[in-house]
Amino acid sequence: MYHKTMHYRIFNVFNTCLLVSLAILCIIPLLHVLAISFSSKAAADASLVGLWPVDFSLEAYKKTINNPAFLHSIWVSIARTVLGTALTLAVTFLAAYPLSKDNRVFRSRSIYSWLFVFSMVFNGGLVPFYIVIQKLGLINSFWVLVLPSTVNTFLVILMLNFFRGIPKELEEAALIDGAGHFKTLFKIFLPISLPSIATIALFSMVFHWNSWFDGLLYINNAKDFPLATFLQTVIIQRDMSSMSMSPKEMEMLSQTTVNAAQIFIGAAPILLVYPFLQRFFVKGMTLGSVKE
């Protein structure tokens, strides 16, 4: 057996060390920011913090939590994530069912599927999209964060591939017993597709929580930014002028530790659902890529 040879054992030790250090390297940046967020302002400003907090302090989190603008942006993010995910789920679930049918059963299917696929390979670009959003009156509206991303063809394909895997007999039996297509979809397909619905829900939730550009582009009033956009302007652009803040608040936001705390709070929901993400995403990836 090859595992027992000397060469392989030496290789194995090296290999394990290499991969473990690479893996640790991947999360070191996150640990560093976490350490800063729990350090005192003085230690952080003097660049003393490595991977462990220096002068442990909860000051940064206290300040962050007491910032009404920050709290409001969390609320906007939660609202868009919940509404956006619910809408995407409903629309995707409904659309995937007819698209999963055979061309002989549903003649117009190929026209519809081309409409979906074409929307994936071609787009009008940023400027026409902006004009359409403007003409629809969505500028500065909360709904601009929810509606445009409702249909994602990739998620529709994921769902329809799952539907294709459901035995035909199940559907035929329901139809023969007199159920219509809607009844079949909601009474037969819905209960057994919960795992793939969960996958799509997770995709959509991560997308909404992480989206920042739509807020920056279509919402002019910083008060209505979702958290990701808020962080983008505060941490990356450091653009305080648009934020209409008191000098005290500005002073607070320029602190490294507060930035670190905000980054960490922004990442926290993703870290919380991460165990589920890992399981479902791997499934979703392979579901989306390997098929007949």
Binding site: A90, V91, T92, L94, A95, Y97, P98, L99, K101, F106, S108, R109, Y112, L115, F116, S119, F122, N123, G124, G125, V127, P128, F129, I131, V132, L136, L147, P148, T150, V151, V156, G180, H181, F182, L185
Partner: peptide
């Protein structure tokens, strides 16, 4: 029922994919 089920998705596609394409 198939056409009805596709309707919401098609409205979104029209508004946010095909309408912008006209803008080119």
């Amino acid at each position: 029922p198939f056409h009805v089920m596709l309707l919401p998705a098609l409205i979104c596609l029209f508004l946010f994919s095909y309408l912008p394409m006209g803008g080119i």
